[in-house]
Amino acid sequence: MEIVTIKDIAKVTGFSPSTVSRVIANNSRISEETKNKVRAAMDELGYHPNLTARNLVIQSTKTIGVIMPSSADKSLQNPFFTEVLRGIGSYFHQKQFSILLSSGQTEQEKFEEIERMVLGKYVDGIILLYSRLNDSVVDFLKEKNFPFVMVGKPSGDKDEIVHVDNDNVKAGKDITTYLIENGHRRISFIGGAADLVVTIDRQKGYEMALKEADIPILKEYTIHTEFLKSGGRQAVEQILGLELKPDAVVVSDDLISVGVISMLEEYGLKVPEDISLVSFNNIYFSEIIKPALTTVDIQIYELGVESAKAIIQMCTNQKLSKKRIIIPHHIAYRDSVCLKK
């Protein structure tokens, strides 16, 4: 099969090879009419630009590393990550960027992989899909002055680190207040890992709502687990082992909620008749499970899109209008909460 070259495109369109090259680079000085003619010829002849060679010239890989909080096989069990990746991928596709997804199984493997990405110049920038306390990855990226964007609020240097987030403190307070308004007083909190900033913020909002309602904060009512269905099942065992059992639960992730509901059913308890439940994220199955979840919609797709926009702006030396990008949330009211009489 004969390889189609820029000269072939130039011959068919009547433009010079340099004009064709500028169209491929999407040069703003080339008219849309010219671009359309050249691109039509490229499609007709089956021409594909050699992006590798071009990227070597401009010293860019057009690739962004995306790092998850745990190994890919575990993280991708949670639809949050597939949805945020969908948002990132959709914007990258528009801008002809690619994703290099982390695959390290342990913290050490993940750190070494990021070192290879950065020092080996495999990527132009990094998106961290998490924020945690005392993160060696963040320290490394800052030390190397390497472009990165965080999905979540940084644990430190909030004015320096570019991040895309929700107001998780307010979201935690809003959803807990909703339970209180429905007559609940014994409210438990099930969160993810205690060193994740998203868990810390949602728990803070939960505690603020309790304090404002003069409801005591009981240490035994707060449980931390993994963002997995199995984590929810384990949390229920702890809750049902308490002498004074809660009448409602704030769960910091929809996938954990599925485990909570299924485990409660095994113990003969129903949501919301026996215990009300609210959650976060509004992932795709939240509306179709029984009962449908009352949950905080954090607009996961938009978190992905905005993080992709920010990192590409940083990697192409565009000026960012702000370093803190807040995606608004709202509560999707459904069937998992009852009025407590």
Score class of each variant (00 low, 15 high):
5 T>I: 15
7 K>Q: 09
12 V>A: 15
18 S>W: 13
18 S>G: 12
20 V>E: 04
20 V>G: 04
22 R>Q: 07
23 V>K: 00
24 I>A: 00
25 A>N: 09
27 N>V: 08
28 S>M: 09
34 T>G: 04
35 K>D: 01
37 K>F: 06
43 D>I: 03
43 D>G: 09
47 Y>P: 10
48 H>N: 12
49 P>K: 05
49 P>I: 06
50 N>Y: 08
50 N>M: 06
51 L>A: 13
56 L>E: 10
57 V>G: 09
59 Q>C: 09
59 Q>L: 06
60 S>T: 08
62 K>T: 07
64 I>T: 05
66 V>K: 00
68 M>H: 05
72 A>I: 13
76 L>Y: 02
77 Q>P: 01
82 T>D: 03
84 V>A: 12
95 K>W: 02
100 L>Y: 02
107 E>M: 13
108 Q>G: 10
108 Q>D: 14
114 I>H: 02
115 E>C: 09
116 R>V: 10
118 V>C: 07
118 V>K: 09
119 L>K: 12
120 G>M: 14
121 K>H: 11
125 G>C: 11
125 G>K: 13
126 I>P: 03
127 I>V: 11
128 L>T: 01
128 L>H: 01
129 L>I: 11
131 S>F: 10
132 R>M: 12
134 N>K: 10
138 V>R: 00
139 D>E: 12
141 L>F: 11
142 K>Q: 14
144 K>M: 10
144 K>S: 14
146 F>Q: 06
146 F>N: 07
151 V>P: 04
154 P>V: 12
155 S>Y: 15
157 D>G: 08
158 K>C: 13
159 D>N: 10
159 D>A: 07
167 D>R: 06
171 A>E: 05
183 G>V: 04
187 I>D: 02
189 F>G: 00
195 D>C: 11
198 V>Q: 13
200 I>A: 01
200 I>S: 02
202 R>L: 08
202 R>D: 06
207 E>A: 13
216 P>I: 08
219 K>D: 14
221 Y>R: 14
221 Y>D: 02
227 F>Q: 03
232 G>W: 01
241 G>L: 01
241 G>P: 04
242 L>W: 14
242 L>C: 10
243 E>L: 09
243 E>T: 14
253 D>S: 07
254 D>W: 00
256 I>P: 00
257 S>F: 00
257 S>P: 02
272 P>V: 03
273 E>G: 03
275 I>A: 03
277 L>T: 00
277 L>P: 03
279 S>D: 05
280 F>G: 00
281 N>T: 15
283 I>L: 13
284 Y>D: 14
285 F>K: 09
285 F>M: 15
286 S>N: 07
288 I>V: 15
290 K>R: 15
293 L>T: 06
297 D>A: 07
299 Q>R: 15
301 Y>T: 12
304 G>K: 05
305 V>A: 11
308 A>I: 08
311 I>C: 04
313 Q>E: 15
316 T>D: 06
323 K>Q: 08
324 R>M: 12
329 H>N: 02
330 H>D: 07
335 D>Q: 09
336 S>Q: 00
340 K>I: 01
340 K>Q: 11
